[in-house]
């Protein structure tokens, strides 16, 4: 399980990094999204993988080892929402830049 997820994270990272180095803004926005999946999964995996142990406790005293780690989950939850905000902002900047410069190259002008 761990190995599969680790490879998945690796591939998502590779695709994300490669796309972020490309010249077209749409490629970069897709790359950014892929990279944030990878990073979110990576942070999440830092809490180790547990099946069927959602951190929803019962009232009363509980045994912490019975539950998945809630800290990375809380971090990732906000990261997902902020990731959305980042994508939105980048998209709008991308569109505005395209309107102003007339190109969708990341530098605002075609490379000569």
């Amino acid at each position: 399980m761990e190995l599969v997820l680790a490879i998945g994270i690796g591939v998502l990272t590779s695709c994300g990094v490669f796309l972020m180095l490309r010249p077209r803004t749409f490629q970069v926005i897709i790359g950014l999204s892929l990279l944030s999946y990878a990073v979110n999964l990576f942070i999440f995996s830092m809490g180790r993988l547990k099946v069927g142990a959602a951190p929803v406790t019962a009232s009363g005293t509980i045994d912490p080892t019975q539950f998945a780690d809630p800290v990375p989950q809380a971090l990732v939850l906000t990261a997902i929402v902020i990731g959305f905000a980042m994508t939105a902002l980048f998209l709008v900047v991308l569109l505005a830049a395209r309107g102003v410069t007339g190109t969708d190259h990341v530098d605002g002008r075609e490379q000569r």
Binding site: E2, L3, L5, A6, I7, I9, G10, V11, L12, T13, S14, V17, A38, F42, S45
Partner: peptide
């Protein structure tokens, strides 16, 4: 390389 690195660290 970035992907391989992430895989190794995560694993």
């Amino acid at each position: 390389l970035a992907g391989v690195g992430m895989t190794i660290i995560a694993y």
